[in-house]
Amino acid sequence: MLRGALDARIRIRHSPAPGLWSVQVDPGQFDVALLNLAFNARDAMPSGGTLTIETENIKVRGRSGSTREGVPPGDYVCVTVSDTGAGMEEEAQRRAFEPFFTTKAAGKGSGLGLSMVYGFARQSDGHILISSSLGEGTSVKLFFPRAAKDGGATFFSPQDVAQPDLSRTGNVLIVEDDPLVREHSAQNFHALGYTVSLAASAEEALVMLEADPGIFMLFTDVVLGAGMNGLELALEARRRRPGLKVLYTSGYVPGEIGFNGALVPDAEMLRKPYERHELIRKLSDVQRGGAPGG
């Protein structure tokens, strides 16, 4: 998964410890979290370097350094992703998990990557720590609590969480100008049984909508950069296909830059960053809504 996503000059080193405990996490979201961390490492190593992924069992006790940093006592599987990149200043480390905070140049990232990893860790009843030194690289540690029933090092989805009935799955058109966020969205929809079509702009989305009559839902970011925004896209898409389901997503609020206009009828808004159960709830609400013109 990672080799094709990284520069050939980046060496990947995997160091798994034997006898890892079982943990209870969503495998799709774990993959996305790992990709987020790998992409951050890639961007920190433009000339190449080493990405190291380590896994180990850790017993956090009252006097340990992890406890002092906010990880409560307990048994954990720790996944550490480290790079040999440029490192981060102290201010960047303190704000690393804030949504939309980024040290990257405009247009190079959404600032959602680490906040999504943080959200995934907390959703999994886990914890995340980051350490970095300028010129020496960055290390991110994910702590996942040991599952009650231990049957080996397995990542699996919770089966006891009640989920709304999604009455229909099919092809969803996902429109998002940030490639990493777009991939994260695609992973979430795939995990719920949907097929997806991906577009980076409103103009590209309209072409795909015309070409594929099987698309039954539009999932679009509101702020899309140059060209039409998501609000304008949904209006035009509904004009062309009145029965289209629409779910918006945004980290902005109405009235802020790029977020001026009305939502189409029977649509829903999903706030970024979001967790999968929130996506499921909104999808259920959208599918229960009446289809305009049908």
Rank of each mutant, 00 (worst) to 15 (best):
A8I: 11
G243S: 15
G135T: 06
H14L: 15
E176C: 07
K141L: 12
L34Q: 06
G258P: 09
G258N: 06
H277D: 14
S157M: 13
S64R: 12
V196A: 05
V79P: 00
A105R: 13
E54K: 05
L112P: 04
G85I: 08
A186W: 00
P164L: 11
G294L: 11
S64N: 12
G193V: 03
R95T: 04
V222Y: 06
A186T: 05
Y76S: 04
S167A: 14
V23Q: 05
Y118L: 01
L173I: 06
E90N: 08
P73I: 14
V223E: 04
A121P: 07
D212S: 09
Q187G: 05
Q24R: 12
G227F: 08
P16E: 11
K149H: 06
A153H: 03
T154G: 08
G227A: 08
L209S: 01
D221H: 03
N36G: 01
V222E: 09
T50P: 00
E210F: 14
L114H: 09
V253T: 13
D43S: 08
Q163D: 08
G19V: 13
T80D: 10
T67N: 15
T249F: 04
H190A: 10
R42W: 05
T55E: 02
L247C: 09
M88G: 01
M228V: 07
S115P: 11
R13M: 09
G193F: 05
R281A: 14
D160L: 13
R3W: 12
F259Y: 15
P242W: 09
G137S: 01
N229L: 02
G255W: 13
V23S: 07
V71K: 03
D285G: 05
T249E: 00
G243T: 15
S132T: 06
Q287G: 00
V181F: 03
P16K: 10
D212N: 10
E203K: 10
F143W: 08
E56N: 08
H277T: 10
V77T: 08
S110K: 06
G293C: 08
A106W: 15
I128L: 15
G152I: 01
G87E: 01
P16Q: 03
A105D: 06
K141Q: 14
L270P: 02
Q287P: 01
L20W: 07
T102G: 04
A226C: 08
L224W: 00
G49R: 00
D160E: 07
A44T: 07
G290R: 10
D43K: 04
A92C: 04
P213V: 07
Y252G: 05
